[in-house]
Amino acid sequence: MNKVTENLRKTAAKLLQDKEVEMVIGYGLGSEAVRTQPVFITSPEDTEKLVWNSFCVNGLTKYLSDLKTHPGKLAIVVKGCDSRGIFRLTQDNIIPRDKIVVIGIPCAGQLSYTKLASKIDVSGQLNDVEEKGDDVVIKTTKGDFTVKKSEALLDKCNTCEHHNPVVADHVVGDAINASPTTDSYDEIKKYEAMSTEEKAKFWLSQFERCIRCYACRNTCPGCTCRECIFDAIKPDWVGKEIDVSENELFHLTRAFHLAGRCVDCGECDRVCPMDIPIRLLNKKLLKECKELFNMETPGSVEEGGSVIGQYRLEDPEEFM
């Protein structure tokens, strides 16, 4: 067991013992060696189910919205990117800050299930995982495997803005001394450079495959409307049928509802069962908002409004 897991369990056990929180939301071992799953711990004894390793890819903050009426305080484990979701929820008045106890873990990068599954047999159960430099040794009931961390990282971790959580009441693990990376949006620029026809072809082929399962919406810390436009039947703003036209309307509307609010956690993209690159849409709008309004990545600081919901005299007016 690694030190961080050990300290995490101690911190969680103390919070529950002292009755400071009613529940700790964190990661537990998953169904396969390189997966973890969310666990909801309510007794100090159960804190031994908590783990921290390189497979803690899920963002857990959305559970705070689902559990906002749960009695007492909720403790939640966050990585850097997820921690911005905390401020998304508090700024949107979804849950008061004093109902949450944030356990922040500095994160050097998480490994992609898809990338790992293409390299090694992931079907066993995890015994242990050790990191030595760029080598990750994954010990499972189906054998031991060594992979290069740099070859299995989630794409988003290559341009990580906050390895250290932006908010934490308890920090578990050593702070990471990485010089802050500014995303140059090279990937977005590649898609911007395509011709109108190429763009239409690419995006329609993506929208066409969407099965409207709404996993992207359900995992998103910015998608917390009590009455979601995509569920509304009266008025029927967006058609419920699955066809490329309705799907496109869904995607563009959702992207716009998150413009200037998306905290760039990449969860929508990760959970999509159809591998639709949703993040390319949200990231495009993030890039535009940053360029036009000089905005920080939403959720980076406690106070802050959405650029779309504010007016400043110096706002650009390219449509005048």
Binding site: E197, A200, W203, F256
Partner: peptide, 20 residues
């Protein structure tokens, strides 16, 4: 909005906003 529509392959002339 205009930038998003152009990004997903709408002709730049298709959507316009003007303040009048």
């Amino acid at each position: 909005m205009k930038r998003l529509l152009e990004y997903v392959g709408y002709d730049p002339g298709r959507f316009n906003a003007r303040w009048i």
